[in-house]
């Protein structure tokens, strides 16, 4: 028992270790929080093997063979892997950005959604949905049940816009973000609170992100709800509810040369009850893993 408490204290002390220990001399792709030269595009690509599990019934897991990384930071505006932002304030301790980006929920329903862009596409891999868009959808029944079936309408992609505050401390960076659907697709909102830190252990860099994501009832209902006209007779309908989903992401990178590094990425999300209770879901979680080599151009 004493040993386990010591282990917990050791882990906590590492997690909360001051940034001075964690300073990076990596010369590869600029990582989160690291300097970007203004008005210069930064292109990088990672090639390897990975998979993103799809929590939906009848939708395949999403292969990950190629991960692009594209970023540009101007004096105030920036583009970073799909996120478009404008910095209102960038100080030593905190920054405030207007931010926009595609929602990620449509990606479960459409293999070629921007959130899945480039993932597995160049090297083949099976498309995620067994059938696309207006989908005949059936879930595995319990032995005593009649198999429910659904004729799902299109779950459209949308664009979210809002703001974020980043707070930089010696024991990690915090981010609070809130966004609203700005294309009138579902009129829902998302909010996120995350903590991020990294550690440099010799040449190995370890990045850890813990986040809590909230999605509003409108958003959850649009993607994970089942309306009466989507459910065949006898199949249950579902009204989505606003819910919190925690996520942990742990990334390892090891530079081989100035431009080449090895990557091992892992991510796990546990869906909140408002999503997980949907009959569309076979799992209440999703995990992703990727291992490969990244090259910076």
């Amino acid at each position: 028992m004493t040993l386990s408490w010591r282990a917990i204290l050791l882990i906590l002390s590492i997690l909360l270790m001051p940034k001075s220990f964690a300073s990076s001399d990596s010369e590869g792709v600029s990582s989160l929080g690291e300097p970007m030269s203004p008005s210069q595009w930064q292109f990088a690509v990672a090639v390897g093997w990975g998979e993103k599990s799809n929590p939906l019934f009848d939708y395949d897991d999403i292969p990950v063979y190629v991960l692009p990384s594209v970023a540009w930071y101007g004096e105030r505006a920036f583009f970073d892997n799909g996120a478009i932002g404008y910095t209102l304030w960038d100080g030593y301790d905190y920054s405030i950005n207007l931010i926009g980006g595609f929602g990620d929920d449509a990606g479960w329903f459409n293999r070629w959604d921007p959130s899945n862009l480039f993932i597995g596409g160049l090297s083949g891999g099976s498309p995620a949905p067994a059938t696309d868009m207006s989908t005949k959808f059936s879930r595995t029944p319990a032995s005593s049940e009649t198999e429910p079936s659904y004729n799902l309408k299109d779950r459209k992609l949308t664009y979210m816009g809002g703001g974020e505050v980043n707070w930089y401390t010696s024991m990690g960076n915090w981010r609070a973000l809130i966004m609203q659907d700005i294309l009138n697709v579902h009129n829902g909102q998302i909010a996120m609170l995350s903590w991020y830190n990294y550690w440099q252990i010799m040449k190995l860099r370890v990045d850890l992100t813990l986040s809590l994501n909230w999605k509003s009832s409108q958003l959850v209902d649009y993607y994970y709800g089942i309306s009466a006209d989507e459910a065949s007779w006898g199949s249950p309908t579902y009204d989505g509810r606003g819910t919190f989903s925690p996520t942990i992401e742990l990334d390892f990178s090891y530079p081989i040369t100035k431009k080449l590094e090895l990557l091992l990425l892992g991510r796990y999300t546990r869906f909140g009850a408002g999503i997980a209770d949907s009959p569309l879901l076979k799992e209440d979680n999703s995990f992703g893993v990727f291992f490969g080599a990244a090259y910076r151009f």
């Binding site: 600029s30 989160l32 929080g33 930071y73 892997n81 920054s95 950005n97 959130s115 990425l265 893993v289």
Partner: peptide, 11 residues
């Protein structure tokens, strides 16, 4: 400028 996003974040 400080980068705001992780370059290799999955999803």
């Amino acid at each position: 400028r400080r980068r705001y996003r992780n370059p290799w974040s999955l999803f």
